[in-house]
Amino acid sequence: MKDLICIVCPKGCHLQVDEEHDYAVSGFGCPRGIAYGKAELTAPTRTITSTVRCRGGLYPRCPVKTSKPVPKASIPAVMEALNGVSLTAPVSLGQVVLADVAGTGADIQTTRSMQQR
């Protein structure tokens, strides 16, 4: 048995996951907790949010995120890949700036529009 706190939503349900019985989850408040409990012990993932360089914009950094959760172990590689991205304003919201980041199958997309300075 492993005790976890669900991070899917701010409620923070206290989960128990039984590794020996096919990762059966109890203590969840909704079905997303079941999926999270199992995934957290078998293949944990996170959505990564960060920023990339942006030239000529209202601000010098533009926020981005992975288009879907990526394996936890790939976080350093994703962050490294972001260092090589440089945008030029104007930028629109949801624009893909890096496809298949670090071989995760997820794209990096912008999370705001950036007008020119």
């Binding site: 701010p10 959505t47 949010t49 926020p63 995120k65 919201l93 999370t111 705001r112």
Partner: peptide, 21 residues
């Protein structure tokens, strides 16, 4: 810029700038 916004209101997970937009 982190995510977790909008789960109650939009029923999806947004970042702060996306929620504001």
């Amino acid at each position: 810029i982190h995510n977790g916004f909008g789960l109650h209101y939009f029923k999806e997970e947004l970042t702060g700038p996306e929620y504001a937009a």
